[in-house]
Design a binder for these strands. Structure first.
Length: 290
DNA sequence: GACCAGGGTAACT
DNA sequence: AGTTACCATGGT
């Protein structure tokens, strides 16, 4: 791929392994709205982006070259070698090859660590539509206005300091259920420094996971999602209900416990297990594997 | 009305 | 240490 500035837009051409529909619909990102065919508004890293894909070209509207290079280039993980990742995984077995071919434009985004912590606390025993609604509610109530497009105001995700002002009762009124108290616990531990997000970036994956597990509402699977989508630790394999279904029905062929599924997948897929997980998740959900 | 959704916690054996 | 009831809410 190559990119260039044209007027106030960034144009990326010759872009492979990228499908904006598949990426945003793959259960990792909850802050977007569809505007038209392959055209979306995405809110991330305190910015609002209008993006449109036309075949192997994408247009990022009304941003500077600096904003592209410091934020969006990393957000879309354009430095990751998907050609190599997909070839390596496809050689493992026919099932993962089919999942990759089903949605070859899936990618793993690099999102804000703090936002991923709260988002995936919200994800516990929840569905994607309601997670999306919860994140939007929290942003509009506790975040700050960062842009206005066509008369619609857009809010960033609140910092730990701002979200700390929320009470359990206030959060509960946002219809996020039993997860209200977990968010308060996350705010207290992060804002106080008991869980230091800056240190987390430099830790080993197992140490970082141990830190994340200090927060109530973060268990094994939620921690893995935060490690993956917020810190790009590709050696994890978050095992949710969809992954459980697809692994049991297509790979293991018998009902086993969650940690046994994760262990099996890590051994089978190796160092890039998380990419396999993302293709399989999307494949299972779209094909309603049961 | 039971079951499910990108599960986790606490209270049991 | 391994299992199980319970947790809010909305959709099917």
């Amino acid at each position: 791929m190559t990119y260039k500035q044209e007027n106030n837009n960034i144009i990326i051409t010759n872009l492979n392994h990228f499908d904006i529909d598949e990426i945003l619909d793959s259960g990792q990102c909850f802050r977007y709205e569809q505007m038209g065919e392959k055209e979306y508004i995405i809110i991330a890293h305190n910015k609002v982006l209008v993006v449109k894909q036309i075949k192997t070209e994408i247009i990022l509207y009304n941003i500077t070259l600096e904003e592209y290079e410091t934020i969006w280039h990393k957000y879309f993980s354009f430095d990751d070698d998907y050609e190599n990742i997909k070839n390596t995984l496809s050689s493992k077995d026919d099932i993962i090859r089919e999942a990759i071919n089903y949605a070859p434009g899936v990618r793993i985004l690099k999102q804000d660590l703090w936002e991923m912590i709260i988002t995936f606390i919200l994800s516990a025993n929840n569905n994607i539509k309601r997670i999306k609604h919860g994140v939007l509610q929290i942003s509009e109530k506790y975040g700050e206005i960062i842009d206005e497009i066509n008369g619609v105001k857009y809010y960033n995700f609140p910092t730990p300091e701002l979200l700390c002002k929320a009470t359990v009762e206030e959060l509960h009124s946002l219809k996020i259920g039993f997860r209200d108290k977990y968010i308060v616990d996350a705010c207290i531990k992060v804002a106080s420094g008991e869980v230091n997000l800056k240190n987390l970036v430099n830790m080993t994956t197992s140490d970082a996971k141990e830190e994340l597990l200090k927060i109530k509402g973060i268990g094994n699977k939620v921690a893995d999602c935060i490690l993956l989508f917020g810190l790009h630790r590709y050696e994890v394999f978050p095992t949710d209900t969809w992954i459980r279904k697809v692994m049991i029905s297509l790979y293991i062929k018998k009902d086993v416990k969650l940690d046994e599924i994760t262990k099996y997948a890590l051994e089978h897929f190796g160092e890039n297990a998380s990419y396999a997980q993302q293709y399989l998740f999307h494949y299972a959900r779209k094909n309603k594997i049961s």
